[in-house]
């Protein structure tokens, strides 16, 4: 059986089929040039960043108090924003994925608006609503004495606003793709809806939630427009890494390169984590 199958295949290889399939898979020369140019366009700037980096002084640069402060603030703000997104975004995703009400599809598109909105517009919108004289901000100020703009909390709010759609979309997809019969099985075993959500729905959607959280965190870490508009640019308080990069470019280009390198490293790390754990290459 194996022999005949093998000889069959060999026969094919020497026959006309091979050259025909070869031609079908070949890339027209006219496409090769723009394809290579496109690749270079995407990769060369990043390669330049790595090449231009002041490797000799990298360590001292990284331990510079100003850089460390920006790094620390960025990590705290992005992590807090991700936590906020998880607390608000998972229930929202559940609502979108599982409940049935009129206008659900409209709501789903609304949720994704921050994804395509210029972040600076998001910052303006946040100022209008949560600013000191904003629709809600004025009551936050007069009732609780809380003011969000130009504070670290404001950074977190701005980052969460921009990053939450990433989480909601990922979790929504995971919940919609999950086999709901497991939840039915849990119900027949006597589990309340809340218990089912905690013990069955959430754990089974965990890979999707994890992927969404990582994407959300990476987006928050790189947030610039909404942050600088809503929270300003105060070192140690609201100056995150991307803001520090932008500012350093004027005064100290080497510092800007070092900070950029850190952000690039984080981005690549995120890709690697996602690829190994959650994103199965479609091959």
């Amino acid at each position: 059986m194996t022999r005949s199958a093998r000889s069959y295949r060999v026969g094919h290889r020497s026959g006309s089929h091979r050259s025909r399939s070869y031609r079908a898979g070949a890339i027209p020369a006219l496409l090769v040039i723009p394809a290579v140019a496109g690749l270079a366009f995407l990769v060369l700037p990043l390669a330049g960043l790595v090449l231009e980096a002041p490797w000799g002084t990298l360590l001292t640069r990284l331990t510079d108090p100003a850089v460390l402060a920006a790094l620390r603030l960025s990590l705290i703000a992005a992590t807090s924003a991700t936590a906020l997104c998880l607390v608000l975004g998972i229930p929202l995703a559940w609502l979108l994925a599982r409940s049935r009400f009129p206008g659900r599809r409209l709501l789903r598109s609304l949720v994704t608006v921050p994804l395509v909105l210029p972040p600076v517009v998001g910052g303006v919108a946040l100022l209008l609503v949560l600013g000191r004289n904003g629709l809600i901000g004025q009551y936050l100020q007069s009732w609780f004495g809380v003011s969000l703009p130009f504070t670290t909390a404001g950074v977190i709010v701005a980052e969460a606003f921009v990053a939450m759609p990433f989480l909601v979309i990922a979790v929504d997809g995971a919940l919609r793709g999950a086999d709901q019969r497991f939840e039915e099985a849990a119900a027949t075993l006597g589990a309340s809806r809340w218990l089912i959500f905690r013990k069955v729905t959430l754990p089974m959607a965990a890979p999707g939630i994890g992927a969404g959280a990582v994407l959300c965190w990476a987006r928050a870490l790189g947030e610039f427009g909404a942050t600088i508009t809503f929270a300003g640019n105060f070192p140690g308080e609201t100056q995150t890494m991307p803001l520090a990069v932008y500012l350093a470019l004027e005064s100290d280009p080497e510092a800007a390169i070092v900070l950029s390198l850190v952000l690039l490293a984080v981005s690549i790390a995120v890709l690697v984590i996602l690829r190994d754990k959650w994103i199965r290459p479609a091959s």
């Binding site: 019969r181 849990a186 027949t188 075993l189 309340s192 809806r193 069955v200």
Partner: peptide
């Protein structure tokens, strides 16, 4: 009476054992 409050046990066709437990 919803399923979780019925004294009913179900064995499903493909068993639906929770894969994460």
């Amino acid at each position: 009476v919803p399923p979780e409050r019925r004294a009913v046990g179900v064995v499903f066709q493909d068993y639906l054992l929770f894969p994460h437990l």
